[in-house]
Design a protein around this nucleic acid. Structure first.
Lengths: 199, 199
DNA sequence: AGAAAAAATCGACTGCGGTCGGTTATTTTA
DNA sequence: TAAAATAACCGACCGCAGTCGATTTTTTCT
């Protein structure tokens, strides 16, 4: 069993994350100070920094957890025999909806994950690998069913779809594509990628 | 002619940008304080903030200028009768090489441009439009030459290629794809997008 | 159990991004 | 050209992210 110390650490970490979600959602990320967060969590300011290296890491940790959870949910529900485009739409729109509902979190997270200051750590890659682990079987099955070319690497196929997802996220953040147009844009672009741009 | 005041403003702005390039390149963006920058530029700290709203805006202004310049150079050199893939490679690899040589600047700029905090301003869109203005003729010509489907909107075509560019930038920043593999990856993925992922 | 070691907590402190009201330089007016 | 008006400049100041050494809590050793 785990010691008092380990139990407390887990509880404190949870408490910091819960308080962060509450305050960041209420007042925004930049508008919430670490001192405020510490007060809400009932601990000292310094303690927060023994759980997270930076303020942004708090968001990162929270989002990684959420993604992990969301994906396991999706994996359970997914049906490998529906058309590829349907499965992809379900997965990527789920991710997308999450971002639209947590714009502030999403932005900080994307900054850290997509254009990180330092190359990603082992742990960061873990999250990415879990992501591939979820998608690869889907693409592989689609190859078997003749929906995808068999001469392409799964990594590249994943890349194409992910690239479109990134693009639409950016278009949404810049205000170029409004929320309600995203599903249609995503379906159109994924379909076009499958069909090819050349005649 | 312009007044003393206007001339000085232009000179001061230039001076701030030059000092910023020097110091940010030398010591990094975060490691350079605004006070240091002001000292290097020979002006007061407050003055910087009457030219730029935030520290990151300095990078943004610089990069916008550079992009503008780089694109006009490219437009002059480009040959509309070479194969589409060749033209795209020249344009996007030029952008990419610029980023690899100014990693720090690129990262700050991408954060601001790709996942901005607020929807982009009129001026931000201008930079984007200039970008489209450069690419649209290329895609249009490719449609005429039968290299691209004619039933697709130029906006979508642009989007597909740009999406791949974004993806590779991200893969480079995360350390997933090393610099030397980028050209090959870019060519492969653009080609695949043209051909389509489906059999 | 009691002492010693190790780990976790804390808040005063540091440095920096950004602000603001006072000062200086330029332009306009009379 | 002198005075009034306006724009640019400045640096002391504020609030916050992140640090660090002192203090408290838990674990380990004897």
């Amino acid at each position: 069993m785990s010691s008092i110390r380990e139990q407390n650490k887990i509880k404190t970490r949870r408490c910091i994350l819960d308080s962060a979600v509450k305050l960041f959602s209420q007042k925004g990320f930049e508008q919430t100070s670490i001192e405020e967060l510490a007060r809400e969590a009932g601990i000292g300011k310094g303690t927060i920094y023994s759980y997270f290296e930076t303020k942004r890491d708090i968001v990162k940790a929270f989002c990684d957890d959420q993604l992990d959870f969301a994906r396991s949910e999706l994996a359970a529900k997914s049906n490998p025999d529906t058309p590829l485009i349907e499965q992809l739409m379900i997965i990527f729109m789920a991710d997308f909806n999450y971002v639209t509902e947590h714009k502030e979190f999403g932005r900080v997270y994307l900054h850290e994950k997509i254009f990180p200051k330092e190359p990603l750590t082992e742990e960061d890659f873990q999250v990415q690998n879990d992501y591939f682990d979820m998608l690869y079987p889907i693409y592989q099955r689609a190859q078997e069913l003749g929906e995808l070319r068999q001469d392409l690497e799964l990594l590249h196929i994943s890349g194409h779809v992910y690239a479109i997802y990134l693009l639409l996220l950016s278009c949404w953040y810049t205000g170029m594509v409004p929320t309600e147009n995203i599903p249609e844009a995503m379906e159109t672009m994924i379909t076009q990628t499958l069909e090819g741009l050349a005649p």
